[in-house]
Design a protein around this nucleic acid. Sequence first.
DNA 1: CGAATGATACCCT
DNA 2: GGGTATCATTCGG
Length: 212
Amino acid sequence: MCAASAEPQPRLDSSSFFARDTVEVARSLIGAWVMRETADGVSAGAIVETEAYGGPEDLASHARAGLTRRTAPMFGPVGHAYVYLVYGMHECLNVVAYGEGRAAGAVLIRAIEPRHGVELMRARRDRAHDPDARLAAGPARLCQALAVDRSFDGHDLTVGDRLWLAPPPLGEPQPLDELASGPRIGVDYAGAGWAARPWRFWLAGNPAVSRP
DNA sequence: CGAATGATACCCT
DNA sequence: GGGTATCATTCGG
């Protein structure tokens, strides 16, 4: 066994990082890494786009349905994954955080900039001619590129097992200069009050963001 | 621009 | 139990 692989992997943890308001967590996750390890190796990237979902009273959030079989992970421990199917064919990855009153908040991870295992990600996407920056530019593309599916629904993202979230590497601090915010995507059905909230965060000008 | 594609929640019998 | 409207999207024409 090589010594390096026995070293503890850096991780974001549920007692401090995720136990905060979902909007703060969404903002703080920009620059953090999504790490994925399979038998084929490690693939990973830096988060460049997120969206905050507030809890049961947020009409844009699935949590508005209350505690159901589907939404159960959102009502569980912070730092765990909520993975769901949308439009009958695409998976989306969220991490649970505190919503209003510490209830059922979540952060949708919408895009990463591929940094490690890029060819693995390209092969999973089956898009030989896409630029690297577009391989995980969108919530469903991200899941496909990292081989994340609903089997990770409820998965603890703080443990470092197969799929986890890591702080930005040393020497690569959060690029907060370029942090932009605006309305969330595709949530008009929630009504103007909720749809207008600037709960989407992204790195301005970064080519890996889902929509420029 | 529009089709693809299926789980989910909700409102009925 | 069954019918159905509604999607936190992507890709190709």
